[in-house]
Design a binder for these strands. Structure first.
Length: 449
RNA sequence: CGGAGUAUAGCGCAGCCUGGUAGCGCACCUGCUUCGGGAGCAGGGGGUCGAGUGUUCGAAUCACUCUACUCCGACCA
């Protein structure tokens, strides 16, 4: 993508409403624009990151055996009356009336709707286990939206719903999502730490939140440091096999939010040199809640003995529109964002130091074509701007690698590659640039870790 | 929902107290010179001063009402 033809409205000044780093940087890097309290447009650069995050989530959901579909944002109130939540949900739910004065709502979650779909089509125990998920916009009329898209009213959520014959099978479904989540966050360059959690208003028995450590996190968390370095289950993990050892391995180490434990309990349970008290951003939440919705909504299947069985359900959420700022909170410096390659809006930016100079333009155009042909997701800064301005923009928006070419390098046949994360620079022959950059980037895509 | 605050050009701000031609920096446009860390000079464009009502010869400025947004506290992917 040629930057001169792209839409990247970076800001030099910091908008005053932004309090935390990720919000400031998302505004400055031209990723989002606030349209009203808790409502955001995703500008091209931001949207591109969001789509990469979404793609990783989809790949890992699919890998674990979940099946993607798409449900509408607007739901009928009648469905929510069946579960009793229409009245229970309160003001957080945005209620809407259509022209015929029928009652609707903008979905804050989809348990009722997915249960309705399930009960309509699935009639036999032979069709289980089943896990259906979608990625769709949700609306929760938060009392106080804040921190940009970290806590917005309209937000994107991946929500998966599992259906099983009994609790033992449902726990297996829960563990599949548990493993999928470990891999999902890792692939985004994050350490997503599972923590025992309160089941809250959704109710149920078994619940883990996944947290990313960041100073600006909204939750206080207590954990065993060993969790930070734990390798996640590999891509060839057998999701149809027994995941209990993995689950036990991860959950045997202490990790809980301050809602579930206190410092004294933590101190007593964890050796002193392993204790870590920090703050965390909740980026995912998984629940097992049994027959809470299936019973009132009559989601039954026929068992082997011909009798009805009420299915056991779980729900599993990740908020991509929260994950994006969480990644920024975890990875930035005073110059801007530092994207991991796997979710970076572009993998590298080619900086033409003297746009308008015929020789430099020709060399850069050629290099850009070669880099693109090599399968790299490239941004090409071909604007007629001072070098310093281009470097500052590249640093701010956080592209992992800058490949820098100007008249000086052209004369000596050399280009420079700057690593955004470390600040390290290397000079190499122009002819080697494509292979070198490919070699740096490809292993970091983490498609099959 | 309680408490505090803000609203003037795309962004950041001054002007308001003490009413009298709406300003600064960045960004934008034109020209020339620059060109390896947010360039320089010269010229230029852009505003219902959040909205309404009132006071006044005259309101960004004073008064009242409303709205939007932000921050601090209890809930949530």
């Amino acid at each position: 993508m040629r930057l001169s033809r792209y839409f990247l409205p970076v800001l030099r000044d910091v908008p005053k409403e932004a309090e935390i780093a990720s919000h400031r940087l998302m505004l400055r890097a031209g990723m989002i624009r606030q349209q009203a309290s808790g409502l955001y447009s995703w500008l091209p650069m931001g949207y591109k990151v969001l789509m990469k995050v979404q793609k990783i989530i989809e790949e890992e959901q699919n890998r674990s055996g979940a099946v993607q579909l798409l449900m509408p944002t607007i739901q009928s109130a009648d469905l929510w009356r069946e579960s009793g939540r229409y009245d229970a949900y309160g003001k957080e739910m945005l209620r809407i009336e259509d022209r015929h004065e029928r009652e609707f709502l903008y979905g804050p979650t989809n348990e009722e709707m997915i249960t309705d779909i399930f009960r309509t089509y699935v009639k036999s125990y032979k069709d289980l286990p089943l896990n259906l998920y979608h990625i769709q916009w949700k609306f929760r009329d938060e009392v106080r939206p804040r921190f940009g898209t970290m806590r917005s009213r309209e937000f994107l959520m991946k929500d998966a719903y599992s259906f099983d014959l009994d609790e033992a099978a449902a726990v297996k479904a829960f563990q599949r999502m548990f493993v999928a989540y470990l891999r999902t966050f890792r692939r985004m360059g994050l350490v997503g730490i599972p923590m025992r959690a309160d089941t809250g208003p959704i109710g149920g028995d078994l619940s883990y939140e996944f947290h990313v450590l960041a100073d600006t996190g909204e939750s206080g968390v207590f954990l065993d440091k060993d969790l930070l370095d734990k390798p996640v289950p590999p891509a060839d993990t057998d999701f149809r096999g027994d995941l209990d050892p993995i689950f036990k391995d991860w959950t045997s180490l202490f990790a809980a939010t301050d809602e579930m434990t206190d410092e004294a309990a933590f101190r007593a349970a964890v050796p002193e040199d392993k204790q870590l008290m920090a703050r965390g951003i909740e980026v995912g939440h998984i629940f097992y809640f049994g027959t809470k919705y299936s019973a009132p909504m009559k989601a039954n299947v026929t068992g082997p003995d011909g009798k009805d069985i009420t299915v056991h359900m779980g729900s599993y959420g990740i908020g991509p529109t929260r994950v994006v700022p969480a990644i920024i909170e975890a990875m930035h410096d005073e110059n801007g964002i530092i994207w991991p390659v796997s979710v970076a809006p572009f993998e590298a930016v080619l900086i033409n130091l003297k746009a308008g100079d015929a020789d430099t333009d020709a060399a850069c155009d050629k290099l850009y074509a070669e880099l693109t042909a090599a399968g790299l997701d490239m941004l090409y800064d071909d604007r007629d701007q001072p070098a310093g301005s281009k470097f500052a923009t590249a640093d701010l928006v956080g592209i992992p690698y800058q490949i820098i070419l100007g008249p000086r390098g052209l004369k000596s046949g050399e280009v420079e590659i700057k690593h955004r994360k470390t600040g390290e620079r290397e000079t190499l022959p122009l002819a080697n640039a494509v292979e070198r950059l490919k070699g740096l980037i490809e292993p970091q895509r983490m498609n099959d870790i």
